[in-house]
Design a protein around this nucleic acid. Structure first.
Length: 587
RNA sequence: CGGGAUGUGGCUCAGUCUGGUAGAGCGCUGCGUUCGGGACGCAGAGACCGCGUGUUCAAAUCACGCCAUCCCGACCA
């Protein structure tokens, strides 16, 4: 049975909704694939769900191939389990909490480390049961501070999350590698241009991780990519390398100068007529309750994640203006390292060469000139890599040139270590009969976000340009004269031939003018479009269009079945994809 | 959480400043003409103008409160 547009619930819109900002959001709504229920929460309509399911199917295949087993965990989770892991207190407001009728605490699962670890600790008691990798594809809820951009950052979304359990470090490495490889296979098969990048492991915790970024100018993340070697890292992670030799401690003496009202680096630099590179920013932080100062050059950006990692603290917050006054004795804007009473002072490594800088004097409306860190600061200074990398910095691996493209995070793999297995007591007996803690990894793919990212990367003026593996239907047959039984019958034959060639097909049999069908086909972004109408049939041809290239090919009605299979393969090739029939693989 | 903006038929918006009969386009229903890149004509249906309170003879319009949605920001001294 051919799916027919005449009965499909796919309400397309000529105009974009007023509340949509980004292109994937606008197009998903216009193409009749999603509708908003409330902020950050969407209903997925038939066409949207088909795209989501296509992504899910490929994810499932590759996960199974990698040896993971599918399960389905509950969305509602007991608060007590989250207390055991310590995250009931630490996860914050993204965790939507509520009580049942008995007043017991529950939450909607934003991720499932607790539940899966609870599951495994009950049954896995022997090294013989390891390794184990369990995954699910399921709705997640995260009460985002500010949901936005349609399916890109919403509160309720569909995610594939997998969790690996291993007996030892080597096994955990292997599991991690298997997932990394599976993710490479998944995103390649989906027809996306993407990069795996080194990443910080963030709040989930753990020691090592990679993100999978779909390259798109509208991405929320910036990544550092080497143009010479294969180094790629999230901007927050990318290391800055270079030679930073201590410089001779000489030069003019430290001098206090009045700088009334000059709070920012720009104001101070302008007032003293120096370059911002000659100013040191002193940033004050509260690190697990301890006062800490971080020093970077005036034109640099401090990378808080690097600072947090360098300090090894759990919570890092910028000091409040009251704290700043308390620690420095001056209002915000005049902090400096000279005589500063904080627990630790960290400085970016490039300041090792620091001579003749301008810094705050820890006194209202005053700064010092001619500061030499080694000479003028009595306290110990820890030099570390603290600043955010820039496009001007060399690649930390090979010193080649860096690019800073934008990306959308669609996948993330973590080595978790024993953080959750330790907290929840997931232990087993090894060969020697000794009790040990399982080593975990976790691996996520934002399935709904993949669909949105796919559109961000592939669209044009007319609408979505779906890669064939993601499209809700790979092919559409536009029947231009549905009232003419001969034409309609021919359209059904064309649809059958496409199906035989391996494509899933929708038949546009609506009693609409041709223009409406053409517009909708392009808007929804069916990769293969075949037009069956009186005019073409009179010449004995079916006109086929490749949505991506716009190229039109006339295929003879007579040998259509054979011709269309070849044409389909050519379209997939244009995407750099093979159709999997083994005839010819592209790329 | 701070700042800004918006809320008017299903959708996109005008009308609000200057209070006085609720509008347009799209979509929808019917009829007719059209029919290969979002057709045209005619006739229709459809709105507690986000909610509440107040001011007024009179409120979509003014005031206050609330709610919702979107955008920017969340401490880079």
């Amino acid at each position: 049975m051919t799916t027919k547009m005449s009965t499909l619930y796919a309400p397309t819109l000529k105009e974009a909704p007023g509340d949509a900002e980004v292109v994937s959001h606008k197009l998903l709504v216009r193409a009749g694939m999603i509708r908003k229920l409330t902020s950050g929460i969407y209903t997925i309509l038939p066409l949207g769900l088909r795209a989501v399911n296509k992504v899910a199917a490929i994810v499932r295949e590759e996960m199974d191939r990698a040896g993971a087993q599918e399960i389905l965990m509950p969305t509602v989770q007991p608060g007590d389990l989250w207390r055991e892991s310590g995250r009931w207190e630490h996860y914050g407001k993204e965790l939507l909490r509520f009580e049942d009728r008995h007043g017991r605490d529950y939450c909607l699962g934003p991720t499932h480390e607790e539940v899966v670890t609870d599951l495994v600790r009950g049954e896995v008691r022997s090294y013989r049961q390891l390794p184990l990798n369990l995954y699910q594809i399921q709705g997640k809820f995260r009460d985002e501070i500010r949901p936005r951009f349609g399916l890109m950052r919403c509160r309720e979304f569909i995610m594939k999350d997998a969790y690996s359990f291993d007996a030892d470090e080597a096994g955990a490495e292997k599991s991690y590698r298997a997932m990394y490889d599976a993710y490479m296979a998944i995103f390649s098969r989906l027809g996306l241009r993407f990069r795996p990048v080194e990443a910080d492991s963030g709040s989930i915790g753990g020691s090592f991780s990679h993100e999978f970024m779909v390259l798109a100018d509208t991405g929320e993340d910036t990544i550092a990519v080497c143009q010479a070697c294969d180094y790629a890292a999230n901007l927050e992670k990318a290391e800055v390398r270079g030679k930073f030799d201590p410089s001779p401690e000489e030069g003019p003496r430290l001098t206090e100068v009045p700088t009334p009202g000059a709070h920012t680096v720009e104001e101070v630099a302008a007032l003293l007529d120096v370059n911002p590179t000659q100013v040191i920013k002193t940033l004050l932080y509260d690190a697990d309750g301890q006062p800490v100062a971080a020093l970077v050059r005036g034109d640099r950006e401090l990378n808080e994640i690097k600072l947090k990692n360098a300090l090894g603290c759990a919570e890092l917050r910028m000091a409040s203006p009251e704290r700043v006054r308390e620690w420095t004795g001056a209002p915000v804007g005049f902090a400096g390292p000279v005589g500063l009473g904080v627990a630790r002072i960290l400085a970016d490594q490039e300041l090792r060469t620091a001579t003749d800088y301008v810094v705050g004097a820890n006194k209202a409306d005053a700064h010092f000139r001619h500061l030499c860190l080694g000479r003028d600061v009595a306290a110990k200074i820890e030099y570390r890599d603290l600043r955010t990398i820039t496009a001007k910095d060399p690649c930390p691996r090979c010193s080649g040139p860096l690019g800073l493209p934008r990306g959308i995070e669609v996948g993330h793999v973590f080595k978790l270590g024993t953080k959750y297995s330790e907290a929840l007591g997931a232990r087993f007996l090894d060969e020697a009969g000794k009790e040990r803690t399982t080593i975990m990894g976790c691996y996520g793919i934002g399935v709904t976000r993949v669909v949105a990212a796919c559109i961000e990367q592939n669209h044009d003026e007319a609408g979505i340009v779906f890669p064939p593996p993601v499209a809700p239907f790979e092919a559409v047959v536009l029947c231009l004269d549905p009232k003419d039984e001969t034409v309609l019958a021919r359209a059904e034959e064309v649809a059958a031939a496409l199906r035989a060639a391996g494509a899933d097909v929708v038949l546009d049999d609506r009693e609409e003018r041709p223009g409406v069908k053409f517009k909708d086909a392009d808007l929804i972004g069916f990769p293969l479009q075949c037009v069956v109408g009186g005019k073409g049939l009179a010449r004995g041809v079916v006109e086929c269009k490749d949505r991506r290239s716009g190229e039109k090919t006339e295929l003879p009605v007579e040998h259509f079945a054979r011709e269309v299979a070849l044409w389909r393969r050519a379209v997939w090739c244009g995407w750099g994809l093979g159709t999997g029939d083994g005839v010819e693989e592209c790329r």
